[in-house]
Nucleic acid binder design. Structure first.
Lengths: 115, 115
DNA sequence: ACAGGTTACGACGCACGTAATCATT
DNA sequence: AATGATTACGTGCGTCGTAACCTGT
């Protein structure tokens, strides 16, 4: 009984407004990368090709392209240089690469160490 | 993407449904933890209270409760012992704690090191 | 009785697939 | 023209909020 009332209504959230629009603008703290995005970035950076990476990931290349673009928007920095129909890592991309690898591999080893 | 405005509204990030209507293959590895889940786990583990953590996270306690339960399902191991109306970390939970902290803090430092 | 955790249910919106278009060789 | 990146559009599924329920002190 008491539970329903005490939870009341939440407002300004730090992330996406899900169920109902809680606040007018959710502008708040820093947006944080998700592991899935980092995996996509790694796959594309590894092949320097969205198409090849999409095949490896078993997903449409449009979806992968969108994901990479979104990630760049979130970071506020391009990770790839698309000049000349070829993909090349930017300075920011090269900086992100080793960190992303470490970040992506951690949960895997973590899961295997659990019973 | 979801309409014309979805692209322009940048901010949230996360995972959700993958409208996978791909072929019968689509073999994916084991379900992997997302950073959002780890943040929730850390908040609950820190307060040893779903209600308090939910207030801090500005979200409903039911949503947080669901998220933690789902995470435990994914790991195949309970992270909290709910006996006696109190929350206590299980052995697996204690094992996960330091790793989760490292994992969650890494992207933050990564972002600040970018131009 | 109350505080807090869980279950039930509906809604909102992202991640993704398909299709069409643009760009480079 | 072909290969590949991007844009446009529709949508299934997951996440979260509200409400109701359950449990321990």
């Amino acid at each position: 009984m008491g539970g329903a009332e005490s939870m009341s209504r939440a407002e300004p959230m730090s992330h996406r407004g899900r169920g109902r629009t809680l606040g007018p603008l959710s502008r708040e703290g820093p947006t944080v990368l998700e592991l899935r995005q980092l995996k996509y970035f790694l796959a594309v950076a590894d092949d320097l090709s969205v198409a090849a990476a999409a095949r490896r990931l078993r997903m449409a290349q449009s979806a992968l392209s969108q994901a990479v673009h979104k990630m760049e928007r979130q970071l506020g920095t391009p990770l790839f240089d698309r000049a000349g129909g070829r993909l090349r890592l930017t300075a920011a991309g090269r900086l992100l690469l080793p960190e992303a690898r470490a970040l992506v591999d951690l949960p895997r080893s973590l899961l295997t160490s659990l019973p």
